[in-house]
Design a protein around this nucleic acid. Structure first.
Length: 210
DNA sequence: AATAATCATCG
DNA sequence: CGATGATTATT
């Protein structure tokens, strides 16, 4: 909100509005190249705003390992930015690996946000930089660059559903561009794509209690 | 309903 | 990758 005036003053190429708390961090130092970085105090729970109208929440290794506090943060992040493309960047390391699946289910399935795993802040830096920089050059690439990065993750998750392997996962993603959309589909919607039995399995996966 | 083709899953 | 059991399509 307070950053609107700042945003409008920015040239038309890619920019990143970073939460003040990241100033001087390894992650921000990695934004080398043709990207404008602005530091903003009042970003709330958001860590980065990107010029393609997406915003990022960064979940570090220690955030995850510490416990479930990050869930509240993610929910606030989601509610505060429903009009923007919400992306959670999470450190998936040797230490945090075991917590990744629950987080993935929570973020992607329950909240409908995008999840990008990275190994460390440096990798996150490159990733975010590419999201912004790729978008600034030519618009048609923007969706692609995002979905290219997302596809492997989404695909892997869809294949966790019983009865869904490589072929059916791909077939599903032709019609449903995100897990969130897929989760909204009814069994009868799914049936022409994967058949009756698997359609039931998929619906059950999303709607049946744990 | 029976068979053939396709797919998921597991070692 | 190949075998096997399950699901889907074809007739």
């Amino acid at each position: 909100m307070e950053s609107k005036a700042v945003v409008n003053a920015i040239p038309p190429y890619g920019y990143i509005i970073a939460n003040e708390k990241w100033r001087g961090s390894v992650l921000v130092q990695g934004f080398k190249g043709n990207v404008k970085i602005i530091f903003e105090e009042h970003l709330g729970v958001v860590d980065f705003h990107l010029s393609d109208k997406s915003c990022i929440l960064y979940v570090s290794e220690s955030d995850i390992v510490a416990g479930n506090a990050y869930k509240r943060k993610i929910v606030r992040f989601r509610n505060a930015n429903s009009s923007l493309q919400g992306i959670i960047v999470v450190e998936k390391t040797r230490l945090s690996e075991q917590y990744f699946s629950p987080l993935q289910k929570f973020v992607v399935l329950e909240l409908g946000l995008n999840l990008l795993p990275v190994l460390n802040p440096m990798e996150a830096s490159q990733l975010i930089y590419q999201l912004v920089h790729g978008e600034s050059k030519e618009n048609p690439f923007r969706r692609k660059s995002i979905s290219r990065l997302l596809d492997p993750v989404v695909l892997a998750l869809v294949q966790q559903i019983p009865g869904v392997g490589k072929v059916k996962a791909l077939a599903l993603l032709q019609r449903y561009y995100s897990i969130h959309q897929l989760s909204q589909a009814s069994a009868s919607d799914l049936e022409p794509i994967v058949g009756q039995a698997t359609a039931q399995h998929i619906w059950g996966f999303f709607h049946k209690p744990l």
